[in-house]
C-alpha cells in the first residue's frame, strides 16, 4: 500500500498494537496520516488515491478534508498514541523530577526542498532561553550536513537524530518513534522554532512545551500552506507559542490534535486496515 504508511515505523507500531508482528506489517488498505499538519491530514501535493480510506489523526483533519470534497475518512488518532499504549507498562513515562533539560527540534528541510534560516541566531536564542542541558534533534538531512550539525555541536549542545523516515520502504528506521519516545521522556521540556509534530508528542508525555525562535522557512516555496503555515499555526494555536506555555491548555489541544480520544481498538484497526478477513 502507500509507502508513506511505513514512515517512522507507523505501520510497524500499529501492527504490534494489533497483536501482529512488528517487523513485517501487512499492507494497510489505505493511507495513514504521517505527521501533524494544518491541512486535511496529508501534505500539500500529497493527494491520497481516490477510493482508499484515509486514516487521519483528528476530526480537525477530517473536517478540512471533507470541506474540499474528500471522503472515506476514518479518524484513528496518531500512531504515536498506540506507541504510548504499548509503552505504558514496559517503559512508562518517568515522574517529572526525574526528567531534566530540553530537547529542541529545529525546523527541518525535507527530501524535496531546503530550509533557509539563521542557525546561529537560533542557537543563540536557545542558549538564552534554556537553563538546563540541551539536546538538539536534527532531521536526518541536516544531521548529515556537517556544516549545520557542527554549529550545534560547537554550541555545546548534544546533537542527535531519531533516524530516517525512509523512502519507498528503503532505509526506514522502524524504531524512529521508539527513539523519539525514549528521548522525550527523559527531557523536561520539548521545544522547537515551529509548531511541529514533535511538540505535540512532547505534550502527550507530559513535557513542558515551547515554540520560539527564528521559525525559518522553505527557500523553494511552492505552496501557500507551507509558506504561511507558521503564521496560521500561531493564530490557531497561540497556547503553544512562547517560552512558557499553559500546560492545561496545551494538553487539551494535544488530545484533540493527536486524536488521543479517537483511538481504535486492536480489533477495529484490524478490520479497518484489512488485516483480517471480514467475509
Amino acid at each position: 500500500m502507500d509507502t508513506s504508511n511505513h514512515w517512522y515505523g507507523h505501520a510497524h507500531i500499529l501492527s504490534e498494537y494489533c497483536g501482529l508482528p512488528f517487523e513485517e506489517p501487512r499492507p494497510i488498505w489505505g493511507v495513514l496520516q504521517h505527521g501533524w499538519n494544518l491541512l486535511h491530514g496529508f501534505g500539500p501535493g500529497h493527494a491520497p488515491p481516490y477510493g482508499f480510506p484515509k486514516f487521519v489523526w483528528s476530526h480537525a483533519n477530517l473536517r478540512r478534508g471533507q470541506a474540499i470534497g474528500w471522503r472515506d475518512y476514518a479518524v484513528i488518532g496518531a500512531p504515536w498514541n498506540y506507541l504510548l499504549d504499548l509503552k505504558k507498562d514496559t517503559e512508562p513515562v518517568p515522574p517529572a523530577d526525574e526528567r531534566e533539560g530540553t530537547i529542541f527540534y529545529p525546523f527541518h528541510t525535507w527530501d524535496h526542498g531546503q530550509v533557509s534560516g539563521d542557525h546561529d541566531r537560533l542557537i543563540s536564542q536557545i542558549r538564552d532561553t534554556e537553563d538546563g542541558p540541551v539536546t538538539v534533534c536534527l532531521y536526518w538531512i541536516e544531521y548529515e550536513m556537517p556544516e549545520v550539525r557542527r554549529r550545534y555541536e560547537d554550541a555545546g549542545f548534544r546533537v542527535i537524530c531519531h533516524g530516517k523516515r525512509g523512502t519507498l520502504r528503503q532505509g526506514t528506521d522502524t524504531r524512529f518513534l521508539h527513539k523519539q519516545y525514549a528521548e522525550q521522556i527523559r527531557h523536561r521540556r520539548v521545544a522547537s522554532n515551529r509548531l511541529t509534530t514533535a511538540i505535540f508528542y512532547g505534550a502527550s508525555v507530559g513535557s513542558e512545551v515551547a515554540v520560539y525562535g527564528d521559525p525559518m522557512t522553505f527557500s523553494d516555496v511552492r505552496d501557500a500552506s507551507v509558506r504561511d503555515g507558521n503564521e496560521q499555526a500561531k493564530r490557531l494555536f497561540p497556547e503553544f507559542h512562547g517560552v512558557e506555555t499553559d500546560a492545561e491548555e496545551v494538553r487539551a489541544t494535544t488530545v484533540r490534535e493527536l486524536g488521543l480520544d479517537a483511538m481504535a481498538s486492536p480489533a477495529e484497526l484490524r478490520a479497518l486496515f484489512g488485516w483480517e478477513p471480514t467475509g
Binding site: W29, G30, G51, F52, P53, D72, A264, S265, A267, E268, R270, A271, L272, G274, T278, G279
Partner: peptide, 18 residues
C-alpha cells in the same frame, strides 16, 4: 469501499470491533 464493512454482516463485525 474498503475491506471493512462492505455489507450488513461485515459492517456488524466492524461495529463490534469498535
Amino acid at each position: 469501499p474498503w475491506p471493512a464493512g462492505c455489507g450488513r454482516d461485515e459492517l456488524a463485525v466492524l461495529l463490534a470491533a469498535t
